[in-house]
């Protein structure tokens, strides 16, 4: 913590909400920041998908750019969305979170996530969900400190073969009892939106544990 504090470059970071007016600079900076933690970059469509529909749920931490005095650079970002989950509860989803390495340990990510949760809560979210790699202890701790619980573990969820936890936070009473629409795929296709694996297209719609191939 002491070394991290020493590195803290300015007294006050500027936390702002995304606006499309500066999309060119913001998106480029965001991609750079987020891609660092990924083996493969997200395509531009993934960013557009979120920002075009839920730009107001994206928050950024900015700091003075030492290389270009008078300008700011992005040092942290959170990207989220809000949608009814399978026709049931209104689910806020935190899709991406990144903080520049030398700014970690300063509570920036926590602050960004809080801003996103507050914004989603303001839009009536019943629950907030996200996934995080099980090896990413820093992220797990961050979310669990905020009251998230692990709801399930997702086997080999990421490209690198690592598993994930789905973390969920209920924001109001009775969320668990909200019925979702019936989904014949049960545990598989229904979670498509959150990125769970998809069966081969040839798979017939059959109940759980029936044959799924040949």
């Amino acid at each position: 913590m002491t070394t991290a504090t020493a590195k803290k470059p300015s007294q006050s970071l500027n936390y702002i909400r995304y606006t499309p007016t500066h999309e060119d600079t913001y998106v480029a900076a965001m991609r750079q920041l987020i891609s660092k933690d990924l083996s493969e970059p997200y395509s531009i469509y993934v960013y557009r998908y979120f920002l075009y529909q839920w730009g107001d749920l994206c928050f950024m931490a900015m700091d003075n750019d030492p290389d270009n005095p008078g300008t700011e650079r992005m040092v942290g970002v959170v990207v989220s969305k809000i949608e009814p989950h399978r026709g049931g509860p209104l689910r806020g989803y935190i899709a991406m979170l990144a903080v520049q390495e030398e700014y970690r340990g300063l509570g920036i990510a926590t602050r960004l996530v809080r801003m996103a949760i507050d914004a989603m809560g303001g839009r009536g979210a019943d629950e907030i969900a996200l996934e995080t790699e099980i090896t990413n202890t820093a992220a797990m701790k961050l979310y669990e400190r905020l009251g998230f619980l692990r709801s399930k573990r997702l086997h080999r969820y990421y490209l690198n073969g690592n598993s994930a936890y789905r973390l969920v936070l209920y924001l109001r009473d009775g969320v668990g009892s909200i019925r979702t629409s019936f989904d014949p795929f049960g545990s598989s296709q229904g979670e498509l939106l959150s990125g769970a694996p998809l069966h081969p297209p040839a798979m017939p719609t059959v109940p759980l544990l029936h044959k799924n191939g040949g």
Partner: peptide, 8 residues
């Protein structure tokens, strides 16, 4: 983090 898995 959102999984980036085009293969899916």
């Amino acid at each position: 983090m959102l999984p980036n898995n085009q293969g899916r």
